Computed example of a mutant assay.
Amino acid sequence: MITQGMFAYLPPLTDEEIAEQVSWAMDHGWPLSLEHTDDPHPRNTYWSMWDLPMFDVGDPTAVLTEVRRAREAFPDHYVRVNAYDARLGRQTTAMSFLVHRPAVEAAYRLVRSEGADRRIAYTVERVR
């Protein structure tokens, strides 16, 4: 199982639990966005944005509607919610968590290689 973002080691969140987290982010004034990808490799930081960021949305129901639309459009992708805190004058991800996983998840393994002078390097490989 891919473990990225907050709540990664918990069971999948229900729509009600997602709404609570979205509401909490909105209470802090954090705009939200949705992203999706079929490649959840830890170094893949460039997920595709779903629609535009929701700067003016004040109702968690609207965000849940977009979550449902993204799930339907990309059933074989991972979908996540991001909340941004702009208090520091830059886009800072304050919260990020998965709201959808594909039925069959990608698997990865850690490969260790040893080099000169006892150097050890690790790479992450996708298992097909």
Rank of each mutant, 00 (worst) to 15 (best):
T3R: 08
A8N: 04
Y9K: 10
Y9P: 05
P11G: 05
P12W: 09
T14N: 09
D15P: 02
E17T: 05
E20N: 13
Q21R: 13
S23R: 12
M26P: 00
D27W: 06
D27A: 11
D27G: 15
P31W: 11
P31R: 11
P31M: 03
L32Q: 06
L32W: 06
S33H: 05
H36L: 09
H36I: 11
H36S: 13
D38W: 10
P40R: 02
P42N: 10
Y46E: 11
Y46K: 15
W50R: 02
W50P: 00
L52A: 10
M54N: 00
F55M: 13
V57M: 12
P60F: 02
T61L: 14
T61N: 12
V63P: 02
L64K: 07
E66Q: 01
V67P: 01
R68K: 13
A70C: 14
A73N: 08
P75L: 10
D76E: 08
H77L: 06
R80E: 01
V81Y: 01
N82V: 02
Y84P: 00
R87K: 12
R90K: 10
T92F: 01
M95D: 01
R101A: 10
R101K: 15
P102N: 09
A103G: 07
Y108S: 03
R109F: 05
R119M: 10
I120P: 00
A121S: 14
A121M: 13
Y122A: 03
Y122Q: 04
V124E: 12
E125G: 09
V127Y: 03
R128Q: 15
